[in-house]
Design a protein around this nucleic acid. Structure first.
Lengths: 138, 138
DNA sequence: AAAACTCATTAGAGTGATTCTAATCTGTTG
DNA sequence: CAACAGATTAGAATCACTCTAATGAGTTTT
């Protein structure tokens, strides 16, 4: 049973993760989780918060993104050396990356099969398999 | 017909790419291409050049890595937000990434099959499909 | 409901990788 | 070898991100 995408839902998410429901975290949680699957950058989310009339420092945005990631509410996606993206979709899936615009788009997990993976060296285990389809303008 | 991994080879590579064979570019080309498939960072390559007695500024290392990448001699691999890796293997293949150590290791292209890719949106084409298998310690 | 406690937020400084600048040097060409 | 175009360089600048240490705000206790 997943949380509803509401204020109450945001509150419950925080409580379940052992994070105090502060003004900033609630506001960021609502921006992140009430609008469906999203890919945000720290600066972008900060801008949205400002636009929504919530005063949040950039440090807090970074803290919050990392805390949410640690709690499994977000997933970090590394596709661009210039900045980090955080994905609200934490289910198994992959990404299109539009190099021109820097936009990310989900590819449903069911849509892609990766076969023939070699056995990882001993002592390590697979944390995740990430597929990025890089797109450029024709 | 690929270039031999020799001084003459490095020179020919540069010529073919329309890059002047300067001392620095030749030295970096030899470090990169005479030792088989490699994954280097700018700082790492700079260190190797110093160790080999070649004076090269960090700016030149960056310039050169990007020029080589533009010429198709290298491929940039984005797996770590902290730094960029450049891969001397420009054939079709994928990577293991050891999160603990920051090491990259090739997975031969033949070893992995990605199926079920959705058709990319109109107006764009697939530049590359990248698979990264993230590994962590057990 | 105030005190007390713990954890969160913040401004601003700090960091580390990368890029820029503008001055100097070096292949290349005539 | 003169002269030009392009390359290299030190150091400053930038950019995303992190750290610090001081202030603020949920929470729990009285």
């Amino acid at each position: 049973m997943t949380e509803p995408r509401t204020y109450a839902g945001a509150l419950a998410r925080l409580r379940q993760s052992g994070l105090r429901p502060t003004r900033q975290r609630l506001a960021l949680a609502r921006l992140l989780f009430e609008a469906g699957d999203r890919h945000v950058t720290a600066e972008g989310l900060r801008g949205e918060a400002e636009a929504a009339g919530v005063r949040v420092s950039l440090a807090t945005v970074y803290n919050t993104l990392h805390q949410f990631t640690g709690a499994g509410l977000l997933r970090e996606v590394v596709v661009d050396a210039a900045r980090s993206y955080f994905d609200t979709n934490v289910t198994d899936h992959h990404h299109f990356f539009f190099e021109r615009s820097g936009q990310l788009q989900d590819i449903p997990g069911a849509g892609i099969q990766v076969s023939g993976l070699p056995v990882p060296p001993s002592g390590v285990e697979v944390a995740r398999v990430e597929v990025v389809v890089r797109l450029r303008h024709k």
